[in-house]
Computed example of a mutant assay.
Amino acid sequence: MRSARVRAGLGSVVLLLAFLAAWQWGPGWLGMPEFILPRFSRVVAESLRMWEQESLLRHFGITAFEVIVGFALGSLLGLAVGVVLGLSPTTESVLSPYILALQIAPKVAFAPLFVMWLGYTIYPKILVAILIVFFPVMINVLSAVRTVDPDMVNLVRTLNAGRWQIFRLVEFPSALPALFSGLRIASTLAVIGVTVGELVGGNQGLGFLLVDGEGQGNTAAVFVSIAALTLIGVVAYAAVVWAERRLLHYLPRAAVSTT
């Protein structure tokens, strides 16, 4: 197993180096102008300039904060609603049309509305992230709670367990693998939600830098912003994977999602 992981890691590194080499020398070989696809070294130089002159680290921190808050609040809301709907089919019948309508509505359309309500602050970006994160977590938890092994529930009931004890000892632990599957998806969607909010009505954050670079025709700055957003998403996803492995270490490897 360890040797397989080492080979996989080496393969990923080789692939990354090949990609960077193609990015560095490919545009020149193809005669592609810098304003369409800048070389990798040009993007690195632009990132250093933005770090010194445009407070890249501050904008990175603002976006990362919005992603963390939006992801956390959206996940908690999705978990709570998923549990409630999973335990109460009647409540699901009443609320599911409205939840479905909220999910179908394009989230981009909400961003200008939130900006009109809350101004050019961090709150519209967080709200868009919450909306996008909510549904995958909710639907995963709902499905998991509904498919709990009834024999396990009956066994705990024979031991005179109350409703809360059944949920704590059987239903919630059974839903954890599905919850983390939803959290993996949500960790990447949170970055998308925040970016949409910053693109529509931002005066700070990486989305703002991306729009600013596009307005100036600075393609390298756009690539820097995209790379920084990708880094936030990768770190968020890795944090969820780490938490999953720590909390679900008791499950067989086949039952735990792979990276």
Rank of each mutant, 00 (worst) to 15 (best):
S96L: 11
Q103Y: 14
N218C: 02
S3W: 12
M116S: 08
T258E: 15
L155K: 04
T188E: 01
D212P: 00
I104S: 13
R42S: 09
G193E: 03
A8F: 01
V133Y: 04
S143L: 10
R49W: 04
Q103M: 07
G28N: 09
Y250W: 15
V148R: 14
S225H: 02
G119E: 01
S181A: 15
L79Q: 00
P97R: 12
L206P: 01
P150Y: 08
L183R: 07
W51R: 05
L87R: 15
E34M: 13
I232A: 08
S12F: 15
A64S: 11
Y123C: 01
F40I: 03
F40M: 14
K107F: 13
Y123G: 03
A186M: 12
L16D: 05
L229A: 13
Y237C: 09
G201I: 02
Q165W: 01
L248M: 10
G119V: 04
A21W: 04
A45Q: 10
V170Y: 05
A109E: 14
F167N: 06
E198A: 07
S143R: 15
T147P: 08
I192P: 04
G182P: 07
Y120T: 06
A101K: 09
V81K: 07
E198H: 06
A161I: 07
G11D: 10
F135V: 01
L57K: 00
R146M: 08
R7E: 12
A64F: 11
I126H: 02
A243W: 14
L209P: 01
R42M: 02
R184W: 01
A22H: 00
L231A: 15
I192S: 14
A109G: 15
L118S: 06
I185H: 05
V115S: 01
M32R: 15
A22D: 00
R157N: 05
A8P: 05
S187G: 05
A186L: 10
W164I: 14
V94Q: 04
S41A: 13
S187C: 07
F65K: 15
G26T: 03
R168W: 14
S88K: 04
P124M: 03
G31Q: 01
V191E: 06
A254R: 09
G86L: 02
F65Y: 14
L210P: 08
P27I: 03
S88L: 05
V44P: 08
R146C: 02
I62M: 04
S93M: 12
V224M: 10
V141E: 08
L48Q: 14
P27T: 00
R157M: 15
E46S: 10
S174E: 10
V196T: 13
L247P: 06
A101S: 13
T195H: 06
A227D: 14
Q103G: 06
N154G: 00
V196P: 06
Q165N: 09
L248C: 11
P27G: 03
R2T: 15
L16P: 00
D149H: 14
P33Y: 09
A109C: 15
T63I: 07
E52T: 12
Y123T: 05
W51C: 02
V67A: 11
A227K: 03
V94I: 15
L79R: 04
L57S: 01
A178H: 04
G26N: 04
T188V: 13
Q24I: 03
L247F: 14
V256K: 02
V43N: 00
L169T: 05
V145W: 10
A8T: 10
W242R: 11
L127M: 13
